[in-house]
Measured scan of single mutants.
Amino acid sequence: MDTYKLILNGKTLKGETTTEAVDAATAEKVFKHAANEHGVHGHWTYDPETKTFTVTE
Rank of each mutant, 00 (worst) to 15 (best):
M1V: 10
M1R: 10
D2E: 13
D2V: 11
D2C: 14
D2Y: 14
D2R: 09
T3G: 04
T3L: 12
Y4H: 03
K5C: 08
K5F: 13
I7K: 05
I7N: 04
L8V: 12
L8F: 12
N9I: 15
N9M: 12
G10V: 09
K11Q: 11
K11A: 12
K11G: 08
T12F: 14
L13E: 07
K14N: 09
K14R: 12
K14Y: 14
G15A: 14
G15L: 15
E16S: 11
T17N: 06
T18H: 09
T18Q: 09
T18S: 11
T19A: 07
E20F: 11
E20M: 14
A21D: 01
A21Q: 06
V22N: 09
V22H: 10
D23C: 05
A24C: 14
A25Y: 09
A25E: 12
A25V: 10
T26E: 14
T26Q: 11
T26N: 08
T26Y: 07
A27P: 00
K29D: 07
K29E: 11
V30K: 08
F31S: 00
K32F: 07
K32Q: 10
H33Y: 09
H33E: 14
A34Y: 15
A34I: 15
A34L: 15
A34T: 14
N36V: 11
N36K: 14
E37M: 14
H38V: 15
G39R: 06
G39T: 04
G39M: 07
G39S: 06
G39C: 06
H41V: 14
H41S: 12
W44A: 01
W44V: 02
W44L: 03
W44G: 00
W44P: 01
T45Q: 09
T45H: 11
T45I: 08
Y46G: 00
Y46C: 00
D47V: 06
D47L: 04
D47G: 02
D47C: 09
P48C: 05
E49I: 10
E49Y: 10
E49R: 09
T50K: 07
T50Y: 06
K51G: 03
T52M: 03
F53E: 01
T54Y: 09
T54F: 07
T54I: 07
V55W: 03
V55L: 08
V55P: 00
E57V: 07
E57M: 06
E57H: 05
E57A: 06
